[in-house]
């Protein structure tokens, strides 16, 4: 696997006004994420997870500090070039799927390609390939309301990958899914990381999801509290536990 840096953040700070109160969402975040990593960002409510996601994804600009995506500094970019960066270098997967309801699955996936300047893919062909890859070959002409939650999220993942971006960001991608669907989606994301060498960064508060990542960054009060890689043994242990739960050998603790 190549090791170039896909996300480079240095002393990122973000402040905003909440009513009349100034809130420091991020207090100086510095991190590097390399190509092909499977990273989870976790933290309690108000820790700055979504804010960090927004800055990495080019959806917002930092108050200070720098952020570079695939070698391109986006810290002070205007909206127009930032939009192009989002189109070509970043794929997004959201908790609420955020598919366009009036478009079919095929059209949703083809959409980012149609607005790409590089035109490296044929939109329809690429969309079909991705949907087939995610097991939705027979659902291409279905609208989102005709798909289950898991299917919708897989369509969203396919859309996020349509321009083959180096970075895929997920904001609580399994938040609205049941356990089985969550597993399907996580498997899909793993597949993406493994086969396409795409860097996957997930924001989550679900420990189950967090346990499946290779590297877990914990945010507390706008700062990185921990940044720990997971060992292979740890991941295997978690995988075994999950299998037992799926077969009913081990019931998940409720509440």
């Amino acid at each position: 696997m190549t090791q170039e840096i896909v996300v480079h953040a240095k002393d990122l700070k973000k402040e905003f006004m909440s009513g009349e109160v100034q809130v420091q969402a991020l207090r100086g975040i510095s991190l590097e994420i390399r190509r092909g990593e499977f990273v989870g960002i976790i933290g309690p409510s108000g820790s700055g997870k979504s804010t960090l996601m927004g800055l990495i994804g080019g959806l917002d600009t930092p108050s200070s500090g720098t952020i570079a995506i695939d070698g391109v500094d986006i810290s002070a970019m205007n909206e127009r070039p930032l939009t192009s960066i989002r189109n070509e270098k970043i794929g997004f997967v959201f908790q609420s799927f955020n598919l366009i309801p009036t478009l079919t699955a095929l059209e949703n996936v083809a959409l980012p390609i149609q607005f790409s300047k590089n035109k490296q893919f044929n939109p329809t062909q690429r969309a079909k390939e991705l949907l087939t890859l995610f097991g939705l070959g027979d659902r291409m002409d279905h609208r989102p309301t005709q798909l289950s939650g898991g299917q919708q999220q897989r369509v969203a993942i396919a859309r996020a990958l349509s321009n083959n971006p180096p970075l895929l960001l997920g904001d609580e991608p399994t938040g609205n899914l049941d356990t089985k669907s969550s597993d399907v989606v996580m498997n899909a994301l793993r597949e993406v990381q493994a086969t396409m060498n795409t860097t996957v960064v997930l924001v989550t508060h679900d420990m189950d999801i967090a346990s499946q990542v290779d590297r877990l960054i914990t945010l507390v009060d706008g700062e990185i509290a921990t940044d720990d890689p997971r060992s292979t043994a740890q991941r295997q242990a978690v995988a075994a536990l999950r299998e037992k739960r799926a077969t009913g050998e081990l019931r998940a603790i409720e509440g």
């Binding site: 994804g57 959806l59 909206e79 127009r80 939009t83 192009s84 989002r86 189109n87 070509e88 997004f92 959201f94 955020n98 366009i100 959409l111 980012p112 607005f115 790409s116 859309r159 321009n163």
Partner: peptide
């Protein structure tokens, strides 16, 4: 929200 999503996936203003 739909507009925000479109902008997220690369549609210009």
């Amino acid at each position: 929200l739909e507009v925000a999503v479109l902008k997220t996936i690369g549609m210009q203003g």
